[in-house]
Design a protein around this nucleic acid. Sequence first.
DNA 1: CTAGGTTATTCTCAAGTCGAGATGTTCTCA
DNA 2: TGAGAACATCTCGACTTGAGAATAACCTAG
Lengths: 255, 255
Amino acid sequence: MNEQDFLAAYDPHAYPAVAVTVDVVALTIRDGALHLLLIRRGEQPHAGLWALPGGFVRPDEDLVTAARRELAEETGLAGEPLRRVHVEQLASYGAPDRDPRMRIVSIAHLAFAPDLPDATAGTDADEAAWVAVAELTNRQLAFDHGQIVADGLERARSKLEYTPLATRFLAPEFTIGELRAVYETVWGHQLHAGNFHRKVLSVPGFVESTGASTERGGTRGGPRARLYRAGDARLLHPALLRPALLRPAREETVR
Amino acid sequence: MNEQDFLAAYDPHAYPAVAVTVDVVALTIRDGALHLLLIRRGEQPHAGLWALPGGFVRPDEDLVTAARRELAEETGLAGEPLRRVHVEQLASYGAPDRDPRMRIVSIAHLAFAPDLPDATAGTDADEAAWVAVAELTNRQLAFDHGQIVADGLERARSKLEYTPLATRFLAPEFTIGELRAVYETVWGHQLHAGNFHRKVLSVPGFVESTGASTERGGTRGGPRARLYRAGDARLLHPALLRPALLRPAREETVR
DNA sequence: CTAGGTTATTCTCAAGTCGAGATGTTCTCA
DNA sequence: TGAGAACATCTCGACTTGAGAATAACCTAG
């Protein structure tokens, strides 16, 4: 049998029924706190519980495209603002019993977004909201989404170390102080302002000066700060290492 | 409708037909060179081409379990030797046209194995072999397996930096020189023996002394070396950074 | 058995990086 | 107008790194 004949005779339904979905751990910073996009499920199973935005991958759609579509549907984002959101694959979750309906393998994605307007519910949810990560500890999420969020957060903390993705939480032009606030928020730890400043400017390609400064000083005083934009580096070298205190003790969630 | 009724009425085949497979990028070191486990496909499509070992995920099987099963089938490994192989999830590949049969999403895994006996072909392959990675450049692989291998290699190089997984390429007891050889092989670059030695012993939990030494010096001379075993650290801190020369210029494949 | 080459292990030293603290200045707010 | 906050730079000591070298143990060839 040649390849042509083989394909003509091939029956896709001969294989076990598995569904593939994408889920999105979308992070942003609001009011100085890390927030996560959640929807309240409007349908069974787990109706009423909070869950990650996500859904089935369409037949002609790439995985990351599906993730961006789901994100767009829940945030109302489109065009240039949507393009500025960073989306990357996080990991896949496929325990046989993770969904009571059937075998569902979910390709989780991680997204970094600048401060966005309030979320708007999509079709299969009656509520979508940015929820402060700090308030998540006592809230139960649907399916294994609690684990996915934990993995996503650890990945985010880790990505700030060796990529310039912290800038994706900010407007195109930002000050070093704003960038430091991103690190402090995601890592949950104060950083030494002077050392951070020195380090950021010394890593090639991390940020580049716009030549301009802010119009006014900060709300609580201080001089006008210089403005920077993201540089062209895709990896930071040398990296901005987290204080030893903040790194994970085990490795399970680290990729 | 409550959750019970919902599940009873649920029809799995109402959703698009997608198959989920696992593929394994299994690496080992043979004769001082990095090798990759490949099978020659015995069935359409791409019959005759070399491909990664892999196959459909069974209904009651976790993803990493499926990957370990596929690996065991191709290497003939079982029991303790199989347990010593490190397997972790690499990434998922789901471009709509990556397989001509149907929509197939593959969860690729990465495995680090000590030097193993020759591979034995499984049921759907007429040949399985450890192939030197260096000889792979001019060989075409089936599907998108070339990309998966490239991603796996970059991940492996990166994992050696911040995890103690290099020890998984070796026997339970090894010398610092053998460990250095792993790094040199995977990174494709000579390292400074003295500095490597100092660094490995200074990273907490990387290796621990067995108190013993090798019975004889190396085949080409030198004193007997002390023997070590893997320590209990899961992450190396501070990391063993690759020379700047060896790090990827872009970030696409880095997780 | 010996010479020469190879490897393990430890040192030295200069250059680079990091954490902590301090300084001088510019701003905002009360 | 004065206090307090934030920006931008410096300093300094501790630590890490890269490169070279020293010493000693051990193998193989001859």
